[in-house]
Every structure is written in C-alpha cells, then in structure tokens.
C-alpha cells in the first residue's frame, strides 16, 4: 500500500518551516496546520511581515546593528555619548543592554565571536570596522561585552590586543553571580571571578 503523503504545497510549507532554527519536524507540522486552519488574513499578515522585514531591515553602516535606515536609531541619536562604545556579538545583545537603562554610549556589533572549533576567525567579524571607528570617532572607552564563554573570551583577548591605542580605555564587562541566585549552586569559575572582582563597601581597599 502506498504511503499517504501530504499535498505538495503542504509538504513544501512543512519543509520550509522545518528549516527555521529550533523548529523540528513535528513543530513544523503543527505550525503548518495552524496556518492552514487559520483565516487567510492571518497567513497574509505573517507573510507580509516577513517580506517587509526582509526588504526594509539591513545593517547600520556604523555599528552593524539591525536597522531600517542607513544609520540605526542609536547611531543617529545625538544625546548618546559617542566617545564610549560597547562591543557586543549580536544585535540581540544590544537589546539586552538597552533594557538595563545603564548605558548611554553607542554600540558596535561584531556579528559573531572568534570560534577556533568552528573555524571563525577575526577576519569574518566586524573588527576592522571597530578599529577604524575608534580613531575616526575619537572614542575614549571601549567596553567589551562579549559573552563570558570560551568564544566570547577569545574575542575579548583578541580585541584587547588590537585596541592597544594610547589614551584609549578598554574595559571588560564584569563576571559574577546572577542577582537572585544561590551561592551554593555557583560554579567554581564564576564564583572565583566574583571573588576576584569584589567591591569594597567599607574600609580601606584590600592589599593586592
């Protein structure tokens, strides 16, 4: 007996959805059937949103964040401090830092991190553009906000070496314990770094 298959158009839709990150074959099937059951307007809205985003959104010519214009909102905002640049791996990291409302400088999105095991080297990242910005925009501080994993640390080490410019402050985001977490569950590396980067809250500073 021949195997019962989906109509070609349905199978194409399932295959297309299944190629999205984090969507397995079962999830792809579920989403496809949801779209087929929903009214035509919902599917049109989704299709239009995808097309509009693909058409309009590109990368900011200065910081390589996602943007609908040649320059993103942050790079066009005169109230932001252009002398301090926060370096992140991905556009979503910009959103995470903006949520803190602690940072009023500008960003530089590397679009990845150095990854020896995946063969991603510095020439595949936006590092050359960062170095050009530092000189052209008279940057006084670069904050390296790459992820605290092996790839992020390798990127931070490389940037530190490349940003050895007189008068430029290069800082690295602190490592430590997440607020609301329990000390007993902290791993050795994180706890060790939290101790190393402790802050004096009273009295003289401890001897080095």
């Amino acid at each position: 007996m021949a195997e019962v298959a989906f109509a070609a158009a349905v199978q194409d839709l399932i295959d297309a959805l299944g190629r999205l990150p984090g969507v397995g074959p079962k999830s792809a099937q579920r989403i496809a059937f949801h779209l087929l059951k929903a009214d035509a307007e919902e599917s049109s809205r989704l299709a239009a949103a995808i097309l509009a985003a693909k058409e309009r959104v590109g990368f900011c010519e200065v910081c390589f964040n996602l943007s609908e214009e040649a320059r993103c909102e942050i790079c066009s905002d005169d109230r932001r401090d252009g002398h301090v640049v926060c370096v992140v791996e991905e556009p979503r990291d910009v959103v995470a830092i903006e949520r803190t409302r602690e940072f009023r400088g500008r960003y530089h999105v590397l679009q990845g991190a150095i990854d020896h095991l995946q063969g991603v080297g510095p020439e595949q990242l936006r590092i050359r553009e960062l170095l050009a910005r530092v000189t052209a925009e008279q940057v006084t501080e670069v904050i390296i906000c790459t992820n605290p994993n092996l790839e992020g640390e390798a990127t931070a080490l490389f940037l530190t070496k490349m940003l050895d410019v007189p008068g430029l402050v290069v800082s690295r985001i602190a490592n430590g314990l997440p607020v609301g977490g329990d000390l007993e569950y902290a791993d050795e590396l994180t706890l060790g770094r939290a101790l190393e980067g402790r802050r004096v809250v009273a009295g003289p500073a401890p001897a080095e």
């Binding site: 095991l117 605290p148 994993n149 092996l150 997440p178 609301g180 977490g181 569950y185 902290a186 791993d187 050795e188 590396l189 994180t190």
Partner: peptide, 13 residues
C-alpha cells in the same frame, strides 16, 4: 541562561 545550574562547567576544555 545566566542562572543555569551548570554555569561554566560545560565549557570546552
């Protein structure tokens, strides 16, 4: 996640 119970323990090496 930053609050993962595994933390940095599962980093390469």
């Amino acid at each position: 996640r930053t609050r993962s119970k595994f933390g940095s323990r599962l980093e390469p090496g």
